[in-house]
Design a protein around this nucleic acid. Structure first.
Length: 657
RNA sequence: GCCCAGAUAGCUCAGUCGGUAGAGCAUUUCACUCGUAAUGAAAAGGUCGAGGGUUCGAUUCCCUCUCUGGGCUCCA
């Protein structure tokens, strides 16, 4: 029999009989590999395990526990979901069902406008497990478009995808489903069930099984708000029960960190329904933390050459007509108020008012860069369905600064802005950063091309000088200028977009801003927008989740609580509290009316950095029993010694810049 | 705005096949005075999200609305 030679990723070669498949290859290498195999990469293209391998092919086996392998598992599980739904709901239309981060989804339209309820998930789950148990093969076929349209007659969403692909008007969603070639690829599991798909898939449904259907949701067909609302089912799928359980456990952990839950438990803030959606009130403990954040920010800005300004919450409509907000973002603004002889709006941004400050008198180049800073309260009418705790809120505070500079100053200013932003983010305990550089959308921009090129180059060079890893998002800039967005990674690996540095070629133009240059002529300044926290509220929410409520000592609402062992030690406990407060620390006392163990538990539940227990020995020796958050109890620590330690800790936490 | 699920004491939740409700924690009081994550007892606490309908009677069934949660869409 003729043989073919296959090259493996490690450079080694193997001879196999002609007609051998990737499965044969995997089996020839080892039983474990054959078991874990879900697909293959043949000459750089993902392919099914069961395809005959071409001669002299480069082949890599995709195993279930790799990212690519999980993607295949999830996509295949989505097909099983569709098969189960079609079986249980005769007449159901199926549309698309891709693998996504950690799982998959599939969108359906049910007959008669029926919708899924959570209760349906159990019966769908059971039907899926039967399909998996039946060990159905995923059989690939390639058809001309005309034939595919016949196969999917009565399935309007599938036909639409086929037509878009065959007429060349497909987008990524479509090609993700069926590839972009001349023929349409499909996978058939049974005579009854066939689905469009580019593949690859696992060879048979028995490779699947470690999945869980998570939730039902509405989703627009092709993401179009005006299009039909389909019924989406989300699921997660993994290569083993252990991995599935770990994933579910991670979800539980994230849920425990939910800032809305922690905000209630720690009595930080609330969203009273009487107040209205997306509006928060800050309780004393939350307000302490927020004030510390803001004070620190002010201190850094004062040292960084910023000038503080204040501007009102309301403005005459004319201002937002000049700025363009009413033209571009009216839907996102609170409705107008008619008063006196004009129309007023809540401000959605601070920049127009900062422009008015710049414009209030003639400016000289000697004043530039002029850096204006404000913790400005803005109000945006976010749609009801989008509100999410502090992360998406209707009234919030931007730590907003606008920098007006000469064009030749911009590059240096950007570089120092980036240093400043990163330094402050580090002080709040973030260490992992990535950035996005958004460039010009050629179809929608103002300003001249040279200015855009210079601005983009300045942003890029700042990123490179700082050594911040970044991705370029082509065409993602706002119409008025390119920008850098900075993402931080939190303690459990989630990314949050926080800071932004943006060029603006538009606003200075609209407001007719000018400065007098060395040539005594008038010039237009460059304007830079810079938000560091972004929104103080959202940043607080991110910190709360990052620290799981256990704020570092420097910003903890209560830094230490003193517990007298018995009433006899109350006097000494009061002295300790007074001493620590005199040193500037936030300390309180929990008297002996509850048992000691109970009081310790309460203080721990409140995530107090230090619980200080004082009894007979401590009164005698002016010492403390120190019970630190997350550490070991230490008896007989001298009061002076503890004070010094606490000062040192706070200083060290803020020195990490 | 659209789809799904909710709303019962401050919090977490149980319950009422239609006859106006209960637990744990928290709160208050009393007793206990204790050395590192829950002492015991008692009291108080609810227009069962709002409005309308069906009914002799609705917290429970139906409708509408509000709000909350998960998605979609949107996010200067």
């Amino acid at each position: 029999m003729a043989e073919i030679t296959i090259s493996l990723p490690d450079g080694s070669q193997r001879s196999l009989p002609e007609g051998a498949t990737a499965t044969t290859l995997a089996e020839s290498i080892g039983r474990g590999l054959a078991k874990a195999a879900v697909a293959a990469v043949v000459n750089g293209e993902e392919a099914d395990l069961g395809n005959p391998l071409p001669a002299d092919a480069q082949v890599a086996i995709i195993t279930a526990e790799s990212d690519a392998g999980r993607h295949v598992l999830r996509h295949s599980t989505a097909h099983v979901l569709a098969q189960a739904v079609i079986g249980l709901f005769p007449g159901a239309k199926y549309s698309i069902g891709p693998a996504i981060n950690d799982g998959f989804y599939y969108d359906f339209e049910l007959p008669g406008g029926r919708t899924f309820t959570e209760g349906d998930l159990a019966s769908i789950d059971a039907a899926m497990r039967l399909i998996i148990k039946a060990d159905q093969p995923f059989v690939r076929a390639e058809l001309p478009a005309a034939e595919a349209l016949l196969v999917f007659a009565g399935q309007p969403y599938k036909c639409e995808i086929i037509e878009r692909v065959s007429t060349g008007s497909a987008d990524n969603d479509d090609t993700g489903e069926i590839g972009s070639g001349e023929t349409i690829s499909v996978y058939r599991n049974t005579p009854e069930f066939v689905d469009l798909c580019r593949g690859p898939h696992v060879p048979s449904t028995s490779k699947l099984g470690h999945f869980k259907l998570m939730k039902v949701a509405g989703a627009y067909w092709r993401g179009n708000e005006k299009g039909p609302m389909l019924q989406r089912i989300y699921g997660t799928a993994w290569e083993s029960k252990t991995s599935l359980d770990e994933h579910l456990h991670r979800l539980e952990e994230a849920e425990k960190r939910d800032h809305r839950k922690l905000a209630v438990e720690l009595d930080l803030l609330s969203f009273p329904t009487e107040l209205g959606g997306g509006l928060a009130v800050w309780h004393p403990k939350g307000a302490i933390v927020r004030k510390l954040m803001e004070d620190y920010s002010r201190e850094r800005h004062a040292n960084g050459g910023y000038q503080f300004v204040f501007t009102p919450h309301l403005s005459n409509a004319a201002l937002f007509e000049t700025s363009g907000h009413l033209g571009f973002y009216k839907d996102g603004m609170y409705p107008p108020m008619e008063m006196d002889n004009g129309t007023y709006y809540m401000k959605p941004m601070n920049c127009p008012m900062h422009c008015l400050i710049f414009k209030s008198r003639q400016r000289s180049y000697r004043e530039l860069p002029l850096r204006l800073f404000e913790l400005g309260n803005v109000y945006r009418y976010e749609r009801a369905g989008t509100l999410h705790g502090l992360m998406r809120i209707r009234g919030f505070t931007q730590d907003d600064s606008h920098i007006f500079c000469m064009p030749e100053q911009a590059a240096e200013e950007i570089a120092s802005l980036l240093d400043f932003v990163m330094s402050v983010l580090r002080a709040f305990g973030f260490n992992e950063f990535t950035a996005n550089l958004s460039t010009k959308d050629p179809n929608k921009y103002v300003g001249d091309d040279d200015a855009w090129d210079d601005a983009t180059a300045a942003l890029r060079s700042a990123l490179e000088k700082y050594g911040l890893p970044y991705k370029i998002k082509e065409g993602d800039a706002a119409f008025y200028g390119p920008k850098i967005d900075i993402d931080v990674q939190d303690a459990i690996g989630r990314k949050w977009q926080l800071s932004t540095i943006q060029y603006d070629f538009n606003m200075a133009e609209r407001f007719g801003l000018e400065y007098v240059g060395t040539d005594s002529l008038r010039h237009r300044p460059i304007m830079l927008h810079r938000a560091l926290f972004g929104s103080v509220e959202r940043f607080f929410g991110v910190l709360l989740e990052h620290y799981a409520g256990a704020f570092p000592t420097w910003m903890a609402p209560l830094q230490a609580r003193v517990l007298p062992v018995a009433t006899a030690h109350q006097g000494y406990a009061e002295q300790v509290v007074a001493r620590l407060q005199a040193e500037g620390f936030r300390v309180d006392l929990d008297d002996a009316s509850d048992q000691l163990g109970k009081r310790i538990r309460t203080a721990k539940m409140e995530k107090t950095p230090y619980v200080l227990v004082v009894g007979d020995d401590d009164v005698a020796g002016t010492t403390l029993g120190v019970n630190p958050r997350g550490g070991e109890v230490e008896r007989g620590v001298g009061l002076d010694q503890f004070v010094a330690r606490l000062h040192a800790e706070v200083e060290e936490q803020l020195a990490n810049v």
